[in-house]
């Protein structure tokens, strides 16, 4: 199993995505089973890859691992959501996001450090990176719900009947998921920032992480945006601005991650030293 490569699971996810896209064109009684089959095959290969190729899985200890674990989480989220609403094409939104993250993992160099760490440092670091990963996951789900909300809203405004080949979730459901996702992301991001600060203050090992690091600045801006807008928007029952907020925040997160990748950011390595 150590021979499993990124291509294996990426291909499986791509096939599953292609099958999901066919929902738009024709009806099939067996498609869901095939989609699940390919996703599960990909997920198994993905899990083995993480186990064998990222020495200390499930620790998130490099940019590549972060991207791969996030993609892995998104695929699981896609399976769970599709299980509860089999007629809704969550995969069409979530699988491309997962593939995007895998693409990110391919682009960044694998700079895993095998520096000795204290157990205390390890716990702090895992909470810091783990909660950032969960925030990413929550924001991705929020993004998916937001996209589905906007499509459904547009359909209803144009007075068009539901699509006959697949079902979009109701506005009420999408909005609820958007809210839960943004609130969860707020909590996870706050925890991640707090533990990042603690790592910076308490461990000399993280001294090289600057406050001007794109990931640090990005996370803080994300947190402030979430805290300011979500309270205001979600205290009212308005749906469209909330969906747009989920989309905007997720796009910002992607921008931050892209910046971190393009600037060959040292944040990932510093926290493990």
């Amino acid at each position: 199993m150590s021979g499993v490569g990124i291509v294996c699971f990426t291909s499986c996810y791509l096939i599953a995505l292609c099958l999901e896209i066919t929902r738009v064109f024709f009806r099939s009684a067996i498609r869901n089973a095939f989609v699940l089959l390919w996703i599960l095959a990909g997920l198994t290969a993905h899990t083995f890859y993480l186990y064998y190729h990222t020495a200390v899985f499930p620790e998130v200890n490099s940019a590549r691992t972060y991207f791969l674990v996030s993609a892995w989480g998104l695929v699981i989220a896609s399976i769970c959501l599709s299980h509860f609403r089999p007629k809704t094409p969550f995969g069409i939104v979530l699988l491309p996001l997962a593939l995007l993250l895998i693409g990110g993992a391919i682009l960044v160099p694998d700079t895993l450090n095998s520096v000795q760490r204290s157990e205390f440092n390890l716990i702090y670091r895992n909470i810091h990176t783990g909660t950032f990963f969960l925030a990413t996951l929550a924001l991705s789900i929020g993004f998916t719900a937001g996209v589905l909300y906007l499509i459904q809203d547009r359909q209803l405004r144009l007075k068009r009947p539901p699509f006959s080949l697949f079902l979009l979730p109701s506005l009420e459901w999408s909005l609820k998921i958007c809210r839960y996702s943004v609130w969860s992301a707020l909590f996870f991001l706050a925890t991640s920032i707090v533990f990042g600060v603690l790592l910076k203050l308490n461990f000399s090992v993280s001294r090289n992480v600057s406050i001007f690091d794109p990931l640090v600045i990005g996370s803080i801006i994300l947190f402030i945006a979430l805290a300011c807008f979500s309270e205001k928007l979600f205290s009212s029952a308005k749906g469209k601005p909330a969906a747009l907020l989920a989309l905007f925040i997720f796009s910002f997160l992607i921008l931050v991650l892209l910046l971190a990748v393009l600037l060959n950011n040292s944040h990932w390595q510093e926290v493990v030293r």
């Binding site: 539901p162 979009l168 109701s170 459901w173």
Partner: peptide, 22 residues
């Protein structure tokens, strides 16, 4: 069977249920 043809059923199943989950 997928396309409803009465005004009340279209109103409820095709539109209201796309807004409200329950």
């Amino acid at each position: 069977h997928r396309h409803r043809v009465s005004i009340p059923s279209i109103a409820v199943s095709d539109f209201a249920s796309q807004i409200f989950e329950v």
